[in-house]
């Protein structure tokens, strides 16, 4: 009984039989998964596999056709503000307002998240991501690498318990991508943050994620640690697994528990 309660408390994200269709097109086909506190989970799949739809449902941007989603034990649409207060999000494809200075953008979002001692918090994050020299620069004038790091500062303003990262290293050169990966790993370990990570960069996933969910045609086709997935599919790298799944060259699936 006590173990059940503990397990319930530690589950940050719970998705049960989630289904989404747009007319006759099925985007997500009854997927289920859980993410425990402190876990870093990679959500992988080819274009059209259903990862964006899954993330958008978690963020409350799309309503599911059926199934249940709960974050911190709450329905993210019914308890939207309470859930979002403890989450944050960063994407390589979502910008902060370009005609505000970096410091102004971060200050506005710090206000929206109700951050206390905003100035100190912003300074700390800018230093952590080594972008403190950009504070007075207009956001629209930043390079991709700078912009990604500023977006990550915004994503950590409220010390989120659950962080959604959508291809955070996309369009970064290998040097900056490596720095961002290391910083994310450091921050995640220090804060014991729960992270859902999507990327087409398999190196990101292999380095950062403790568990991987492979989506294909709206279904979870594989779930487990990178090692378990590589071993099950008999491939050397996650990239080879990705390609095999995307090209329908796999005939078996690896679902939760099978690798234990």
């Amino acid at each position: 009984m006590a173990a059940d309660i503990e397990s319930e408390v530690e589950t940050i994200v719970s998705v049960e039989k989630l289904h989404k269709s747009f007319g006759k097109a099925v985007a997500i086909d009854e997927i289920s998964f859980q993410i425990k506190r402190g876990e870093v989970v990679g959500l992988l799949g080819a274009n059209g596999a259903g990862k964006s739809t899954t993330i958008q449902i978690l963020l409350g941007l799309i309503a599911q056709t059926s199934g249940k989603v709960s974050i911190f034990g709450m329905d993210p649409w019914k308890k939207r503000v309470a859930v979002l207060q403890r989450c944050n999000f960063s994407s390589a494809y979502v910008a902060l307002p370009y005609n505000l200075k970096v410091i102004e953008n971060l200050d506005v979002f710090a206000q929206l998240y109700g951050v206390s001692n905003r100035k100190k918090k912003i300074e700390e994050l800018l230093q952590l991501f080594e972008v403190d020299h950009l504070a007075q620069k207009m956001t629209g004038g930043l390079s991709s690498g700078e912009s990604t790091r500023v977006n990550l500062c915004k994503a950590l303003l409220n010390d989120p318990e659950f962080l959604l990262l959508d291809e955070p290293t996309a369009s970064l050169d290998p040097d900056i991508a490596d720095k961002v990966r290391k910083l994310l790993a450091q921050v995640q370990a220090e804060r014991h943050m729960t992270v859902l990570y999507t990327s087409h960069n398999m190196r990101d996933v292999q380095e950062l994620c403790q568990r991987v969910l492979f989506l294909h045609q709206g279904k979870i086709i594989a779930e487990g640690s990178s090692e378990a997935i590589l071993s099950h599919f008999g491939q050397e790298t996650l990239e080879e697994v990705f390609i095999a799944i995307a090209r329908n060259q796999v005939t078996t699936s690896l679902l939760s528990g099978e690798h234990n």
Partner: peptide
């Protein structure tokens, strides 16, 4: 300014 998503996923 492609910022609407940030606004929508903020707790407002």
């Amino acid at each position: 300014s492609r910022n609407l998503l940030n606004a929508f996923v903020a707790p407002i």
